[in-house]
Design a protein around this nucleic acid. Structure first.
Lengths: 145, 145
DNA sequence: TTTAATAGTCAGCTTTATTGACTTATATTA
DNA sequence: TAATATAAGTCAATAAAGCTGACTATTAAA
């Protein structure tokens, strides 16, 4: 019977710690850009999620970020006031509030993204394209419930 | 000239958001176990880092978790008091404090790990072994400075 | 038209992390 | 050996991020 090395407990545990470190490193890269705009980690996570999911509704954002609506609200209202994020009423369901980055928000998100992409690009340039594809594929499967 | 799809900005951006979600999901899995022991996310991160890096010194832990020593201290002293983590003086350099999980700490870490590994195992079982190897390889490269 | 879902809000609290200013112990180097 | 640097610990004050609970307003569905 074959022993699947990659399914061994120690490998799984190592992967879990690698994910912690990869996230921690990647999301600390834009520290200066965020500070310049008086934003914290909570703003960063929110901007990132709205950027890649334009038109996302509040309920889905809460699920994605795994925070309460009260926690989200404080940060979201700040970003709306500063005209980084805009809201619109859902056309299918009028109770929904659909969130988008404003033009100003897109610029700041790009600035944040530029500091983060360096790290990823370096890693990808040292990898084969199929390795990168596998990376993304597995990442998506980890997210799926 | 070839266009490397996987190096396109939108793909990199998507990867960055996938990492956010994968980390958020993976590290919210042990919510009940942590709550039972009156531990929070900070304790979780610390236990995980010491588990996979036995004998790590305080300075390296601070670098890995990207927090200040004052932030680390509060949580670390709690875990030392509760006999989850033990300290020993470094034999090479007597100023170092080397951190280990105690037997009690190993048990709790296993309990935490068991809730996290399910998600990873499911993802890995649906993947080929070379995809998992690529995943780990790229993850490590993202961490590297 | 009653009920359910979505979003927003107010208040009070806990947890996590920060800055800045120190102390103690050990190691290095001049 | 004496001066300096490094690693860790500590005290105090503050900020950032998150939570629970109790509500209101709006819109959709039964």
């Amino acid at each position: 019977m074959q022993d699947f090395l990659y399914l061994r407990e120690n490998n799984i545990k190592e992967i879990i710690e690698l994910m912690l470190e990869a996230y921690t490193n990647s999301y600390s890269d834009p520290y200066e850009v965020l500070k310049k705009n008086s934003f914290g980690k909570a703003h960063h996570r929110l901007i990132c999620a709205v950027d890649i999911n334009p038109g996302i509704k509040v309920a889905d954002l809460i699920k994605k970020l795994k925070i309460t609506k009260q926690s989200l609200s404080r940060v979201l209202q700040e970003l709306i006031k500063k005209e980084i994020i805009s809201q619109s009423k859902g056309d299918v369901d009028g109770r929904h509030r659909l969130l988008h980055l404003t033009e100003k928000g897109k610029k700041i998100s790009e600035e944040i993204f530029n500091t983060q992409k360096k790290r990823i690009l370096e890693a990808f340039k040292e990898s084969d394209s199929d390795e990168v594809l596998s990376f993304k594929k597995v990442l998506k499967k980890i997210i799926a419930e």
